[in-house]
C-alpha cells in the first residue's frame, strides 16, 4: 500500500519584523503529511511550531515557499483542516454547545443539523450533560475536550493540534491523550491525518507514527524518527524507551557540542 500524500510543505521560510529587526523564524521547512498518518512536530519553544500550524490553517499567510493540499495550492482557509488550540480558545460568552454550533453556523449549516452535529461530538468526547455549561465552569481538561469536539465537528480531513495537553496537569493530560488515541484508532471519523505539535517528547512517542524534530529558532528540521510500535503504547516498554532515547539524542546532538 503506497501512502497518499495529503499535505506537502516545500521550502517554507518566514521572517518576522520586530522593532526594525528581522527575525528568521522558519528556515527551509519541507515535509509531507500522508493519509492515515499521525505526525508529531517536536522542538523547543520559539522554534516556530505554532507558526507552521498557523500557516497550514490559513491564519498566517506572509511566508515564502509552497503549501500543497492534495497536490494543489492549499486553499486559504482550507475547509478540510481544523485546529485544536493550546489555550483552548473557547468563547467565554457561549455555552459548550453554542461554542461548537458557532463554527458549524459559520460553515452554513442549518439550525437542526447544527444541534444534531454538536450534540454528537459533545457525546463523543464524553461531555454529555455539560452542553449548557459555560467554559468558565469547566476544568482545563473539560475545556480541551470542548476544543477537540469543536475541531472534529467540522469533520476535517486534517486535524492540527497545537500543544493540546500542555496547559493541563499531568494526570488529566495522560487521560486525554488516551482518549485521543482511542478516537484516532476507532476510525469512525472522516479524519484522515493528524499533525500535532508538542515539546514533550514522551507525548510524541506515545502518539505519533512519525516524529519530526525541529531545531531552536530559526526552526529547521533536524531529522525524523518513525515510531513503529503497536497501539496502545506503554511508556515503560523497552522498545518505547529506545525510541525515546533516540529522539533525545537527535535533539541534543544537534544542539550540544560534545
Amino acid at each position: 500500500m503506497t501512502a497518499v500524500t495529503l499535505l506537502e510543505l516545500k521550502n517554507l521560510n518566514l521572517t518576522f519584523k520586530e522593532k526594525g529587526k528581522e527575525l528568521s523564524v522558519l528556515e527551509d521547512i519541507s515535509f509531507t503529511l500522508d493519509e492515515g498518518e499521525f505526525l508529531c512536530l517536536v522542538g523547543p519553544s520559539g522554534s516556530g511550531k505554532s507558526t507552521i500550524l498557523r500557516i497550514i490553517s490559513g491564519i498566517l499567510n506572509q511566508y515564502t515557499g509552497e503549501v500543497l493540499y492534495k497536490g494543489q495550492p492549499n486553499p486559504q482557509p482550507n475547509p478540510n483542516v481544523s485546529m485544536v488550540f493550546q489555550s483552548f480558545a473557547l468563547i467565554p460568552w457561549l455555552t459548550v454547545q453554542e461554542n461548537i454550533e458557532l463554527v458549524l453556523e459559520a460553515r452554513g449549516m442549518t439550525p437542526r443539523q447544527r444541534v444534531r452535529t454538536a450534540l454528537k461530538y459533545i457525546d463523543m468526547v464524553g461531555l454529555d450533560s455539560f452542553e449548557d455549561a459555560y467554559p468558565r465552569e469547566l476544568s482545563g481538561g473539560m475545556k480541551q475536550r470542548v476544543g477537540i469536539a469543536r475541531a472534529l465537528a467540522v469533520e476535517p480531513e486534517i486535524l492540527l493540534m497545537d500543544e493540546p495537553f500542555s496547559s493541563l496537569d499531568v494526570l488529566t493530560a495522560a487521560d486525554l491523550r488516551e482518549q485521543v488515541v482511542n478516537l484516532w484508532l476507532e476510525k469512525r471519523l472522516p479524519l484522515k491525518s493528524v499533525l500535532m505539535v508538542t515539546h514533550n517528547m514522551e507525548e510524541a512517542v506515545f502518539l505519533a507514527d512519525r516524529i519530526l524534530v525541529l531545531s531552536a529558532r530559526p526552526g529547521h528540521i533536524i531529522g525524523e524518527i518513525s515510531v513503529d510500535l503497536p497501539r496502545p503504547r506503554d511508556s515503560r516498554d523497552k522498545a518505547f524507551e529506545e525510541i525515546l532515547d533516540k529522539v533525545y539524542s537527535m535533539i541534543l546532538s544537534s544542539r550540544l557540542k560534545s
Binding site: V42, G43, P44, S45, V170, H199, N200, M201, E202, E203, A216, Y248, I251, L252, R255, L256
Partner: peptide, 8 residues
C-alpha cells in the same frame, strides 16, 4: 517531565 526546553 520530558520538557525539552528545560533539559536542553
Amino acid at each position: 517531565g520530558h520538557d525539552i526546553d528545560e533539559l536542553i
